[in-house]
Design a protein around this nucleic acid. Sequence first.
DNA 1: TGATATTTAAACACCT
DNA 2: CAGGTGTTTAAATATC
Length: 213
Amino acid sequence: MGPVIGMTPDKRAETPGAEKIAGLSQIYKMGSLPEAVDAARPKATLVDSESADDELTNLNWLHESTNLLTNFSLGSEGLPIVSPLYDIEGDDVPSFGPACYQNAEKKSATSKPPYSFSLLIYMAIEHSPNKCLPVKEIYSWILDHFPYFATAPTGWKNSVRHNLSLNKCFQKVERSHGKVNGKGSLWCVDPEYKPNLIQALKKQPFSSASSQK
DNA sequence: TGATATTTAAACACCT
DNA sequence: CAGGTGTTTAAATATC
């Protein structure tokens, strides 16, 4: 049978800037492709146990973001200067300017954020204190920062999960001992692909919207 | 125009 | 058993 008979066509109509991303597609080709991907991954040294889940609403950066707003720097052309703060090479570099989405955040209050799900997930994970998040927390992060999803149809969670499973950028880390909360695994960003994601983020046209299409 | 990415929907298996 | 989680397939559409 064929359900899925075309999603409401009007959906497309209202996602102006959001579509332009194609970020990953590009990086997939230009970036240093997978190769050693399964070779050695840091495994994300799982957090000890739970300190992760607790804090996740921590939003430390959020505090700053208030200021960031002011601090926010748009590229000369409106490109999201995502990072004067981190290097693509520094594998750690925790700070990523939340400022970038701060902006998007506002616009996406009612409209779809200009980021693909992969990017959304990436941001959520990167902001967690331990760089690892269970799906549930990913949902929360997205909801917190992109209220659009609060009212969006429920399918987006499915999409998030779909992305986690499908996208090589994300790796699952099982909570081996003790299954702590007993709920699912933690997800983190494959360091190998991180640069790619960052690239994609940089490319976000923000909401150059208004003229796409 | 074809290839690839993204999004969305849905079915299913597994686990708690 | 129900609900959440994770995987997979499929189709429509956008972008390169």
